[in-house]
């Protein structure tokens, strides 16, 4: 597979480490009353879509950047690659 890194251009997937669903970015509020349940769901419940999937890849043999890759799990087509930090900030995880 080839991952088109937003800063480095196309890179071989061998340079990356896979980490699963990008929903891991949406870490729950540890101080909420429902925190125990929220963290349980966050950590253990994942969607397993046949189709478009946002997932985390770490450019370990390279830039050390975490990426959010939108990949179709049925065709392997990669439609979008973003820096995870940009993605996380956009989702309001600035602080």
């Amino acid at each position: 597979m080839i991952i088109n890194h937003p800063l480095l251009g196309p890179r071989d997937a061998q340079e990356f480490v896979y980490h699963g669903d990008a929903s891991l970015i949406d870490r729950p509020d540890a101080n909420a009353e429902t925190a125990l349940d929220d963290f349980h769901d966050y950590l253990y419940l994942r969607d397993n879509p046949a189709g478009s999937h946002k997932e985390l890849w770490f450019h370990e043999q390279g830039l050390r950047s975490w990426l959010v890759v939108t990949r179709d799990t049925t065709t392997q087509e990669i439609s979008l690659v973003e820096l995870a930090s940009d993605y996380a900030k956009r989702r309001g995880w600035d602080r």
Partner: peptide, 17 residues
Amino acid sequence: VSVFRHMEFCRQCLWPG
């Protein structure tokens, strides 16, 4: 290796600010 990867995950994905 795995701790460094984890720390980068925390830095970039959880507390990017």
